[in-house]
Amino acid sequence: MYLASIISVGLFGLTGLVSAHPGHDVKAEAAERAAFLQNAPIHSHSFPQCSSKLKARGHLRRSVARREMAVKHLRRRRGIDSA
Rank of each mutant, 00 (worst) to 15 (best):
N39C: 02
N39T: 04
A40V: 05
P41E: 07
P41G: 09
P41T: 02
P41N: 06
I42W: 05
I42S: 13
I42E: 15
H43T: 13
H43G: 09
H43Q: 15
S44R: 04
S44G: 01
S44M: 04
H45Y: 11
H45C: 05
H45A: 06
H45S: 09
S46L: 01
S46F: 00
S46N: 07
F47V: 11
F47R: 06
F47E: 11
F47Y: 10
P48S: 02
P48V: 00
P48I: 00
P48Q: 01
P48E: 01
Q49D: 07
Q49E: 09
Q49L: 09
Q49C: 00
Q49F: 01
Q49R: 13
Q49V: 05
C50S: 15
C50N: 13
C50K: 08
C50L: 13
S51V: 06
S51F: 05
S51C: 03
S51M: 07
S51Q: 07
S51H: 06
S52E: 12
S52Q: 09
S52N: 06
S52I: 00
K53F: 09
K53R: 10
K53Y: 06
L54P: 04
L54G: 05
L54K: 02
K55P: 03
K55W: 03
K55L: 05
A56W: 00
A56E: 12
A56F: 01
R57V: 03
R57H: 13
R57F: 05
G58C: 04
G58N: 07
G58R: 05
H59F: 15
L60N: 15
L60G: 13
L60V: 14
R61L: 14
R61Q: 15
R61Y: 12
R62C: 03
R62K: 10
R62Q: 13
S63Q: 12
S63P: 00
S63N: 12
S63C: 08
V64C: 05
V64W: 03
V64H: 06
V64D: 07
A65R: 06
A65I: 08
A65F: 03
A65H: 06
A65W: 01
R66V: 07
R66P: 02
R66L: 09
R67N: 14
R67I: 10
R67M: 12
R67Y: 10
R67G: 10
R67F: 13
E68W: 00
E68G: 06
E68S: 09
E68D: 13
M69V: 05
M69Y: 02
M69R: 10
A70I: 03
A70E: 14
V71T: 03
V71S: 01
V71Q: 01
K72Y: 05
K72N: 08
K72Q: 11
K72M: 09
K72I: 05
H73W: 04
H73E: 13
H73T: 11
L74T: 10
L74M: 09
R75W: 10
R75E: 11
R75Q: 14
R76D: 14
R76E: 11
R76N: 14
